[in-house]
Design a protein around this nucleic acid. Sequence first.
RNA 1: GCCGGGGUGGCGGAACUGGUAGACGCGGCGGAUUCAAAAUCCGCUCCCUGUAAGGGGGUGGGGGUUCAAAUCCCCCCUCCGGCACCA
Length: 824
Amino acid sequence: MKEYNFYEVERKWQKVWDQTGLFESPDTSSKKFYVLVMFPYPSGDLHMGHCRNYVIGDVIARKKKLEGYDVLHPFGWDAFGLPAENAAIKRGIHPREWTLKNIEGSREDIKKMGISYDWKREVMTCNPNYYKWTQWLFLLLYKRGLAYRKKAFVNFCPSCQTVLANEQVLAGKCERCNTEIVKKDLEQWFFKITAYAERLLKDMEKLDGKWPRRVIEMQKNWIGKSEGALIDFPLEQNPDIKLSVFTTRADTIYGVTFLTIAPEHEILKVLIKDSEHEKKVLEYIENSLKVPEMERASIERKKTGVFTGKYAIHPFTKEKLPIFVGDYVLVHYGTGIVMGVPGHDARDFEFAKKMDIDIKIVIKPFNEELPEELESAYEEYGVMINSGEFTGLDSFKGIEKVCEKLSEMNLGKKAVSYRLRDWLISRQRYWGAPIPIIHCENCGTVPVPEKDLPVLLPEEVDYLPKGKSPLESSEEFMNTECPECGKKARRDPDTMDTFVDSSWYYLRYIDPENDKQIFDKEKVKLWIPVDQYIGGAEHATGHLLYARFIGKVLYDEGLINSDEPLERLFTQGMILRKTPSGEVEMMSKRAGNAVKIKDFVKEWGADVARINILFAGPPERDFEWTDEGVQGAKRFLLRVWKLFTENEDIFKKTDSQIDKDRLEGKERDLYRITHIYYKRVFDDIENYKFNTAIAAMMEWINHLYSFEFKLSPVFGYSLNMLCITLAPFAPHMAEEIWAKKSEQSIFKQRFIEPDKEIIEEEKITLVVQINGRVRGKLLVERGLTEEDVKKIALSIPNVKKHIENRKIVKMLYVPDKIFSIVVK
RNA sequence: GCCGGGGUGGCGGAACUGGUAGACGCGGCGGAUUCAAAAUCCGCUCCCUGUAAGGGGGUGGGGGUUCAAAUCCCCCCUCCGGCACCA
C-alpha cells in the first residue's frame, strides 16, 4: 500500500477547490444556508486553539452542501483594535502594515485547515470600503436619536490610555490588560442600547432552544431587569424639589427612615449650596471618587456617608427623613437615590446602625413574629405591620396598593429598572474607524454628510497614546469646514469601539463590494437570517448583545427583515493543553502551549487536526489537546484509507445505488447497518454531536473490516456511503478517495435519504428482567405479542432458575423492549 | 446571596422519551507479525467473587416514586460559568 501523504494530498485539494470555485456562493438561491463563524482578530500565527469554531462551522457547511443547499460560508477579519497599535508602537511599523501582514499569515494558516470559505467575500474592518459603512451606521444611529454625546464618569484604562465600555471591564479591571480602571468625567459618545433593553430581553423568547441557555441567561443577568416603583420624596425646605427613588419593595414604605444619594449625583450640589454642610459633603464626594471601582463595589466594605443637613418628607406619614450622601449608592442604577429601610434591607440596616438612625419594623413573616430588636434586616416578603391603612396586607398586595395610592397622590408610580447601561463607543486611539462628526462653534455637533464618507483615517499620525486621541495631533485631519455653515470646524478626534465594526459584519459578507450602500436589501433578504452562528461564549454580553441591538436598529430602519438575524447560535468550548510547567491551560502563545497550525499541518495534516478536535469530546465543553488524541485521530484516518485501498476495485465498481430487495442474510444486514450509521452521523451533526458522529463512523468501519464478503456489491455500496459521510469531517481524504472513481468533487454528490424502512426492520434484543434484574436476553423479530414473549422468556434456563419456588406476582411487557417479571 | 450548567471505569467520554450502564477512543494486558523494535492486525479490559456458567456491588452522598432510575422528585456535598452594595 502506498503511504498516504496528508500534507501533499491536502495541498492538492485545497488548490482544486480554490481554482474551481467550489465553495463560492451564489447571489440567488431557492434553498440557502448561511453558516457564520465569529471572525478573528488577526494576531499573527494562528494555532489550534483558534480553529475549533472554524472546524465545527466547516462540518456543518459541508454537510449542508451535500444536502443540496446553497451555502454561504464567509470569512473576514476584525482588523481594527488596540493590539495592532501596541505592536506597531513597539516595533515601529505602521498599524496598517502590521495588520495586513498578520492577515496574510493568518489567511494562509486558515486555508491550510481546508475550511470551505468563499474567499471572494472576505471582509476587513480596517478597509475604508468597510469602515465607510461603519461610519454610515453611526450616522444612522445618530439620525434615529440612538447616538448621543454626554459627559459622564466613564471607565478609563490608564495602560491602554482610553475609555472602555462597561462590557470591557471585568471586576474593575481592563479586560485586555488587567489594569485597574479609574473613573474619569469625560464627554463621550454613547449608543442608546438601553432604549432596546426591553426588546433585547423579551425577544430572547424567540432564541429559546436555538441559542445556548447559558448565553441567554448571561444576557438576562446583564440586562438585569427589575420591576418596582419610583417614589418621590419632597424636600422639606422646598416641596417643589422631589427626590425620586427606585425600589422593588414599595411594601416597606412605612419603614423608610432616611434617604441616601450617590456621591456623583448632580442634585447634591443644589442641596448643599451655601449650607454649613457643604464643605463636609464636598470632601466626602471627592474622597469617594478616589476609591477604585472594585473596592467601592465590594460587599465587604464598611458603609460610609455624611448627613447633608437636609430633610425629605415621607409621602404618607409626613415625617422628616434625613438625607445622606453615601458611596454605597450607585449613581447609574435606578435614580441614584435610595430610600433607607433599615428594618428590611441589609445595607440600609448597616448604614442606619453606623449613623444611628431609627430602625422601624413594618414587615413580619407570614407565620411567626420578629423580635423587638432586630439583629439583622428581615428581607423576606411577609405581612405589612405598622403601615397605616396598609397594615395586614401581604407584601405582594401591599406593593400594588402602595403604588396605587402614590399614583393618586402624584408622588410615585410603578416602574422598571435595568442594570444595562448605554454603550460607550468613543475610544482615544488611532487604529479604528473615525467618528463621523464635526464640531462647529456655530452649529454645534454636525454629522458628516453621507457623500463625504468615509472619513479617512490619516496615515501619518503620531499614534503614541497620550490619554487623548492620537488623531488630535493631526492638524490636517482635525481641521475641516462645517458642512452646514462652511466655517472652520474641528473633527471629532475619537475612533469607534471595534465592537461597532463587528456588530454588522455578517451583513457585509452578503454584499462585500457594494460602494453605493451598506448592502443591497434584496441580497440580504435572501441570506438573512444567519442559519448557524458559531463562536465563543465569552462574547455573550459583549459582541452578541451589541449585534442583536444593531440588528434591531437595522430592522427598525427596514433594512433587514428579521429582528433576530442570528437565528441559531452554538458556542464552542476552549482548547486546553499542558503548559511546559505542567498546568492545563487555554492554548495560547503566552502560555507556551500553542500548537501552530502551520507546523501541525505539515507534520500531521489538517484532517488529523480536524478529527482530533471533533472527536475529543462534546464541542460545547473544553477539551485538552493531547498527543495521544492526535495519534488516535491519525490511526482512524489511516484505517479508513487502508479500507478503501484494500477494497478499491469493489469501491470503484459500485456506487450509492443498490437494489435492496435482492439482498439477504449478511448482505442485507450490512445494507441495514450502513443506513443506521449513515443516519446517525448526519443526525449527530445536526445536533452538534460531532464526537458521537465520528464514533459511529468508527463502528461502521469496524463492521466493514470484519465483513466476510468483501467482493459483494453491498460492501462497495457501503464504502460509497461511508466516503460521503466522511467528507464533512476529513474532506481532503474523502476527495482523494473519491477521485479514484470520479472526476467530480465528492461535494457535488447529493445526500441520500436514509432508508428508514430497513432501519426499522432490525431484530431487537429483548431483555427479560426478574425483580428489576436482567436474567435473560432474547434476539427476536419486532412486534411479538405478549403471549409469544412470555412463552419464550419462561423457557430460558436462567429465568426458570430464578422463578423456581417463588410466586409470580406480576408480568409486564413493554413491546420490543423489555419483559419484566415480579416474583415473591 | 441569586441564576445557569456539570459530577459516570485508569483517562476523554457514550446511553433515545425511565427500559441491557460504560458505545467509540486513549491507555493497559495478552497474542500474531518481526532477528528486534516501531507500525499494523486479533483478543481481553467497571469493581468484587468464581475454572466457568453464574452471583453480588456500581453513575458525587442520603432519601423517595416505579416492575424498572445515570435519567423523575426531595435534601445535601462539590466543581465550572454569569450577576452581585443593582435598592
